[in-house]
Amino acid sequence: MKMNNDRETIIELEHIVKKYTSRGFFFGTRGNEIIALNKISIKILKGEIFGLVGESGSGKTTAGRLIVRLEKPEEGRIYLNGREMAGLKGKALKNFHRKVQMIFQDPYQSLNPQLSVFDTISEPLVIHKIGNTEDREDAVWQTMKSVGLSPPDDFVNRYPHQLSGGQRQRVAIARAMVLNPDFVVADEPTSMLDASISAQIFNILIEMREKFQVTLLFITHSLSAARYLCDRIAVIYKGNMMELGSADQVIQKPRHPYTKALIDALPKFGLSGKVKHYNTLLPVEREASEHEGCPFFARCRVANKAKCSLERPLLKETDDSHWVACFYAENGTEKGF
């Protein structure tokens, strides 16, 4: 795969497969196997904000959790700066935790209710034994200012329940940023917040990138949020990568019927009559194919039964660094309409 060879890759996922086994109805029986991620490969370049877009159950959160080692893949490898993560131990592992951080979805759940804001943000510094008490205070104060918790004096002694949702998420961002990490996974950081507060968080994330040169993986269900924040966007569906390209490519010239359906579904601010519709979604789902076909076959209007239900389309480069997994994506033609 050759993509943007001029920039360094920071995180690489290589043919990642992750399965979950649901518990069976009776004790000891094994339930269904659910494939959360199906041979996903992603290269995230240094300094970019990479958007991973998908619906609930698409496996987007799982991908983020795999990168921060909260979970282990069944197959495939993950590299940080060219070094494989799986075998890390001892000092190397600790070093890894210093470089890779995560911002969680729900700020009401991701802060320890029994720790003050200062204790929460300074904890990573304590874990990694960085600096003395005074240095840590400096770092905490600095980070709090940069995420807009200012003046810090007003917040350090508070507990999570004394903060609003937006403030909590800022504390969570500060905790992730205080170690000056290279890479941060932001897992739907605004899905629990009001729209007006979300914009504050988006702007903080953009600022973080500029200030600390941190690379971000932004996981979201919202294409419009991804468009605002991200340089490149990957769209995944049921654990399969459907489309990958620059934010402009994916949103202005979507190639995959699923991406098009997502764009169609977004509210249009009352302008739905005036905006172009792709109409790639079947109003009623058809029978899913029994073969290893295209994962989107059951809902795709463009699909050709003879082909799409029997064979899985591979991710192919259609034009400059724009990858699509669809047989009918070439040159943006809309065959099958």
């Binding site: 937006g166 294409l223 302008l271």
Partner: peptide, 22 residues
């Protein structure tokens, strides 16, 4: 303020202007 703090798919990709404060 509410309208300019909302990211959209169509139109210019301008800077979002969040509403300050709580």
């Amino acid at each position: 303020a509410l309208l300019s703090s909302y990211p959209t798919l169509t139109g210019e990709k301008g800077q979002l202007m969040p509403i300050p404060g709580e």
